[in-house]
Design a protein around this nucleic acid. Structure first.
Lengths: 128, 128
DNA sequence: TAAACTAGATACCTAAAGGTAACTAGCATG
DNA sequence: CATGCTAGTTACCTTTAGGTATCTAGTTTA
């Protein structure tokens, strides 16, 4: 397995082979921003996250959480001794460092949605 | 066509039916951040953008630019009188308002790539 | 005893994102 | 006369993201 670091190149999203592009794409995955935003400042259980992210399926929540755990953005603690079994998810330091970006993107989307919808109507009218 | 505005609801990315989710996903589309970042502070021609975004195909660049134009993030000026024909792309005010987020995400990806790669190796080692 | 909670795994399928390659069309360069 | 630049369009194909539905397994509640 070749690590990008071994090439001793500075990561650059514009470079065709740079894996930082994939990291950039992470933010845009359907449920990633919502899950990270939901974990802002608090630990959450699987079921809580599921209720908050309206429309997410069990499969996608598990998949999203595993991916974030693998990347080190989220940590998972399993309480198997206490029954019923309980898992707690929280942001790691790395995960928290992504919070400002996720929250800014979320806010931008909410604030500019109407303008964008109007732009689309106008564009479609002018281009048949 | 029903506009989300007509429902008089506050946009909220956590709501199942809110189109702001789609706007949030925009940032994560493969070429969107790269194109917007490339247009930071300068107008660019089609060919220049193509050279800067390494690996982008003509089709994807056209598609990405049209989408951004439709949403009102990028404006396109066609100089048909001057030959060879020339098009110029620049950010609109709305497009510029997205710059801080795009740049922050790009920087975060570049800065944290190595850490994430290490986390993955560690995770995979501990989970077979 | 049956339903509903906890937290998943897994198989299957579809829709969409994205890539490749070929085509247009006019002009410039060697 | 051929190659290459400008800026695209279009058809076709593959990959992957995401969704649905069903299964496990144990506990709690009515």
């Amino acid at each position: 397995m070749v690590n990008y670091r071994d090439l001793e190149l500075k990561p650059n999203v514009y470079a065709a082979i740079c894996p930082s592009r994939e990291v950039l794409a992470l933010v845009g995955e359907k449920w990633v921003s919502l899950v990270i935003g939901a974990l802002d400042g608090k630990t959450m259980r699987f079921g809580e996250l599921r209720r908050i992210c309206e429309g997410i399926s069990q499969k996608m929540l598990t998949q999203t959480l595993r991916k974030l755990e693998r990347d080190g953005l989220v940590s998972r603690t399993l309480y198997a001794d206490v029954l019923p079994i309980k898992t707690e998810y929280r942001l790691t330091e790395l995960g928290r460092s992504l919070l400002p970006i996720v929250q800014a993107a979320k806010l931008w989307a909410e604030e500019n949605l109407h303008q964008i919808e109007e732009n689309r109507v106008l564009y479609d009218k002018n281009n048949q």
